[in-house]
Simulated assay, not measured.
Amino acid sequence: MRATLLALATASFSLFAFSTASAQAVANGTFETWATRSMVEVPQSWTTVDEVFKGSFGILYSTVTTSKDASSHAGSFAAKMESKTDNFASALLGGPVPGGVVLGRVTPEEALDILDNQEVGSAGGLPFTTRAANLQFYYKLTGANATADSAYALVSLTRTVNGNSQTIAAGAVRLLPAAAYTLSNVPLQYRSSLTPDSIHIGFISGVAATRTVGTTLFVDDVVMTGVVAATKNPVLEASLTLYPNPSPNGEFRLASPSKPAVATAPYTITDATGHVVRTAEATPASLANGRPLELRGLPAGMYMLQLSTPEGPLTRKLLIP
C-alpha cells in the first residue's frame, strides 16, 4: 500500500524550494500568513498533509485536514489539524488522514516517513544556524480518542557535511489532550558539536497505526528558545547542587554558593511529554544556599529542570519516585 501511494505520488508531485538570544523566530511560527498552493490554503513557509496529497492526486483528494483557525493563542490564526476520512487517501493509508504541518516543502515519501518513524530530520527544512535548546509552542488537543491517536511535535537541527545531511540535535514529544491552550517545551538532545544550517519542525494530529476521526490539534506561537554551547562548561555544571534527588514528596532545593546567579536564575520545568509544569523568575541572591523548588502534588515520574543562567542554560533531571 505504501509503495502504491509513493509510486502514484512521485509521478505527479514536483518539489518547490524556499529561497530565515532567547526566543529565536521560526518562519511564520505564528501561523498568521496563509497562501493557496495546489488548490489548498496552507501556512506560508510550511507544507500541509493536504498539499502533499492534493499536489499528487488532484481532484481524487478532496479533504481539508489542516486549516487556519481563529481560536488562536495569540494573533488572528492558529493551525488546526484534524484527522478525517477521505474517500481516496483513507483507503491508501488504511484509515483516517491525519492533519499535519511541516516546516519547508515536503515530498510524499518524506510525509510518510514522518508517519512511520516520528522523525522529521529528513523532511523539508529551512535555514537556521543557532544551537537552540528547545522547541516551544502553545497547543490544544481534543477528541474522544486523542491519547491513543498519538499527536506529535517533532524537531531536528541538521547540517550538510560533505554532501550528506547530519543530525546535530533532535527532539520529539507525544502530546497529551488539552482543552485550553497549553505551553509545551521540547528539549533538543545534541549529538554533535557542529553548528546546524537547517531546522526541521513537524506537528501531526496522529501517528498511531489506527487513528480516529475527530482528533484535533491546534498549534500556535512556535519559537526556538535557549542556546546550547558546543561544549559544556564544567565549572558551571559543577557549581549547582540539587537535593534531595529523588524526592519522594516533590520538594527539592537548589544551591550554588560559588555562583549565586545559577541557583537563583529563572527556570522552566517540563514533564516527560514536554508539558511545562512550573516556571519561576529569578530570585534574590540570598537564596543561593538553598532555593526551594516545589513539585508537590505532581505525579511520580521524571521531570526536566532548565535554568537560564547568565552563563548559559543548565539542565537537571528531577525524579519523583
Rank of each mutant, 00 (worst) to 15 (best):
T268E: 06
I168V: 15
T63R: 13
T65C: 09
P187V: 04
V228S: 10
T36S: 13
N87K: 08
L305K: 03
R174G: 12
E119C: 06
G163K: 06
V155I: 09
R131D: 03
A151D: 03
V277L: 08
E237V: 15
F18T: 01
T160H: 00
R278F: 08
A89C: 04
Y190V: 15
G250F: 03
T66Q: 04
S308Y: 12
T216H: 14
F252A: 10
S122P: 01
E109M: 05
M39H: 10
G95Q: 13
T268Y: 06
T273H: 09
N185E: 02
A21R: 07
T48W: 01
G95F: 15
L176W: 03
L183G: 01
K84N: 07
A229H: 12
T36Q: 10
G171N: 02
T48P: 13
A280Q: 10
T10P: 00
K68I: 12
A230D: 11
S22N: 08
G55T: 07
S247E: 03
T4L: 14
F18P: 01
G100H: 05
V40T: 08
M81Q: 14
F18R: 00
V228W: 04
T66V: 08
G250W: 02
S192C: 00
Q118D: 11
A153I: 07
T30W: 00
S308D: 14
R291M: 05
G100R: 03
Q306E: 09
A255T: 08
S62L: 12
V219F: 06
G301C: 12
T231P: 11
S156T: 09
D116V: 15
V262Y: 08
A238D: 15
R278W: 01
R278Q: 09
A146D: 07
T283S: 15
P177A: 09
E41G: 02
T129C: 00
T65A: 13
Q166F: 05
R105P: 08
Q44Y: 01
T65V: 06
D149H: 09
K54Y: 03
P321H: 11
A35R: 09
R191A: 15
L254K: 01
T283Y: 05
L318D: 11
A170S: 15
T63W: 12
W34K: 12
L319W: 10
T182R: 10
N164K: 11
T309Y: 05
L93E: 14
S45W: 06
D271F: 02
N289W: 01
M81C: 06
S256N: 08
T264G: 10
